[in-house]
């Protein structure tokens, strides 16, 4: 599992490693005992079966020890959940809407100021799309950006966000259920029609972070990737100003892509779940 690049994404990584370690240790003990039993207590080595069939002390011990381990794990996990659920104090809001089979990003607010008409669709890049057709004859290995294979994980227009900023995402969907997942951010959140889920991230390092839809959403479920481009704050502000300026011009092509979808308003009540 990736360590991730946000202030929170270390939580699942850390829990994964601790839980894996615990499981490996228990596994070695249990399977070790089993293999010793299998070699020592073979009939072919003349082993004679003993008669005992319970031992209360032993049974209490191996009920209690797992409980203690579980309490420790639960304590660690609860901390991660509490910080995850706290979406307060965000400096920016982005609305994410899942459609069959593309994502829409609307920039709602930045540093307390409402943003108007910055929003766009983001879908699978053309090169991947051509390559992924049945028997296209194109080799997925050749789909590259800067020497890095981006087959099925590149989009025409990435979500651009600033680093070092607590960004609140409000996530919903226009048709069926999708799930917005960028492993480097440390979580996925279902995009559900009629429901607005809120969650947050705070990215530490600039970079391009890639992910995919994680909830089966129909035939092209495997072909709706996500790219988050994290840039320094100054670059982001410049980019945002450009987008706003573009949106003001009466350019028909830009206007149609920036048009807000009729469904699921941005200011719909956020599901109570992540308020506290």
């Amino acid at each position: 599992m990736t360590r991730g690049v946000t202030t929170w994404s270390g939580e699942p990584y850390f829990l994964n490693n601790v839980a894996l370690g615990v499981c490996v240790v228990i596994g070695i003990l249990v399977f070790g005992a089993m293999f010793i039993a299998m070699f020592r207590f073979r009939k072919s080595r003349g082993a004679v079966a003993e008669k005992w069939s319970h031992n209360t002390t032993l049974e209490i011990v191996w009920t209690t020890i797992p409980v203690i381990i579980l309490i420790a794990l639960a304590y660690l996990a609860t901390g991660g959940l509490r910080t995850f659920a706290d979406t307060t104090g965000s400096e920016m809001t982005v609305k994410v809407t899942g459609y069959q089979w593309k994502w829409r990003y609307d920039y709602v607010e930045y540093k307390g100021k409402a943003i108007e008409s910055v929003g766009f669709m983001s879908k699978l890049d053309r090169e991947s799309d051509e390559t992924r057709q049945l028997n296209s004859g194109l080799d997925p290995k050749n789909v590259k950006v800067d020497g890095y294979n981006t087959y099925l994980i590149n989009v025409d227009k990435p979500l651009v966000v600033p680093v070092g900023t607590k960004i609140r995402f409000v996530i919903t969907a226009g048709d069926v259920i999708h799930s917005w997942w960028v492993p480097a951010l440390g979580w996925k959140m279902d995009a559900i029609p009629g429901i607005v889920n809120a969650t947050w991230t705070n990215i530490n390092e600039p970079g391009e972070y890639r992910g995919q839809c994680a909830e089966l959403c129909g035939q092209d479920h495997g072909f709706m990737p996500i790219v988050v481009k994290a840039v320094p704050k100054a670059d982001f502000e410049k980019w945002l100003a450009e987008q706003q300026a573009q949106a003001k011009q009466p350019e028909p092509a830009a206007a149609s892509t920036a048009e807000k979808p009729a469904t699921a308003q941005v200011d719909a009540p956020v599901s109570q779940g992540h308020q506290g």
């Binding site: 249990v30 039993a37 207590f41 004679v48 797992p66």
Partner: peptide, 20 residues
């Protein structure tokens, strides 16, 4: 917890047996 008990009990059943 109960699943662990089951696994431990299967191993203990094997322990001290005369296995084929």
């Amino acid at each position: 917890v109960p699943t662990g008990v089951k696994v431990f009990n299967w191993v203990s059943t094997m322990w001290g047996g005369s296995m084929t």
